[in-house]
């Protein structure tokens, strides 16, 4: 075989994997990279999309959104909404998973609970928003029950009062999202070897000690992975907030997603909306990199 033929066959071997990958690379490029790059481009243009000859704006739109107090309020609300959601998703998910994994509960009851607990996961965001709007409206079931029980003296406008609106939408999101944790942790619990608990029993460990020293450390990889993913997804929640409060009252439930949407489709300021979207992208990217590093370290 001549040297030329050898180098050609080596080249073929080197290129082959990329050829196999090329269809998915093209799809990723078209569906993910292209829109992303386009939006980044818009954030540096004046009158992006709305003008045929947009001029270069530099960092003007980033400066404008960073100077807007509503943006910082939205960022604060987003962090509150996300952190509270993730913490409670994890806590409730863990409690329910432990309950469903326990041998002390009757198997029939356990199966019924399994179906009931997973129900919120079956609803779309729009249905969840409508359910909670109906439940929490001033004349809704929640106020009625709380008044009957003597817990509150008068009707509370849960979504319409600036004092309660953010807590109310966060609560609705917690209700909607805990099943992900529950299912993942339940799978993890079922994978913990029984020997560990038997050894702990022989050593006279109490229930809470088994939870702290066996269950939680064994579930830690799942807890961290799901928490990070939940953090990324919750940060981008839009329909639930949009349908329940529209970012109001005043700006009390404005989050980054509703802030960006209003810039784009209410103000038609697509350049600033793009800048805001890039900020969300960077935050999500940071979390994603953190997640990938964690996965690699494992």
């Amino acid at each position: 075989m001549t040297r030329q033929k050898r180098s050609r066959s080596r080249l073929k071997r080197a290129v082959a994997p990329y050829l196999y990958l090329s269809p998915s690379l093209v799809i990723i490029g078209l569906l993910m990279l292209l829109p992303m790059v386009t939006v980044i481009g818009y954030s540096f243009q004046n009158s992006a999309v709305l003008r045929r000859d947009p001029s270069f704006a530099g960092l003007k739109h980033y400066q404008a959104i960073f100077a807007d107090p509503v943006f910082w309020a939205s960022l604060g609300h987003t962090l509150y909404f996300t952190c509270m959601s993730v913490v409670f998703h994890m806590t409730i998910g863990m409690i329910f998973a432990l309950m469903l994994n326990s041998d002390r509960i009757n198997p029939i009851l356990r199966n019924i609970l399994r179906v009931l607990y997973i129900l919120p996961w079956l609803f779309t965001a729009v249905i969840i928003a409508v359910i909670w709007r109906l439940l929490l409206e001033p004349n809704g079931v929640v106020n009625s029950v709380l008044i009957q029980l003597g817990i509150i003296g008068s009707k509370i406008e849960w979504f319409s009062s600036p004092e309660t609106a953010l807590h109310a939408v966060t609560f609705a999101n917690i209700w909607a999202g805990y099943p992900l944790f529950m299912v993942s942790l339940l799978a993890g619990l079922q994978g913990i070897p029984k020997d560990f608990y038997e050894a702990a029993d022989i050593d006279g460990a109490k229930a809470y000690q088994k939870l702290i020293f066996i269950t939680i450390p064994q579930l830690m990889p799942i807890i961290i992975s799901i928490s990070l993913l939940d953090f990324i997804w919750t940060m981008q929640v839009f329909p639930l907030i949009w349908i329940t409060t529209g970012g109001g009252p005043i700006y009390s439930t404005e989050v980054l997603s509703t802030y960006t949407y209003k810039l784009a489709f209410s103000s038609y300021n697509l350049s600033q909306a793009s800048a805001s979207a890039v900020v969300i992208l960077l935050i999500s990217l940071g979390l994603t990199l953190f997640y990938i590093r964690y996965q690699k370290a494992r």
Partner: peptide, 16 residues
């Protein structure tokens, strides 16, 4: 505002 102060407006104004 006078209608609101008199309690004549159905509650939940801000999200209705």
């Amino acid at each position: 505002k006078s209608l609101n102060d008199a309690g004549t407006i159905s509650p939940g104004i801000a999200t209705k």
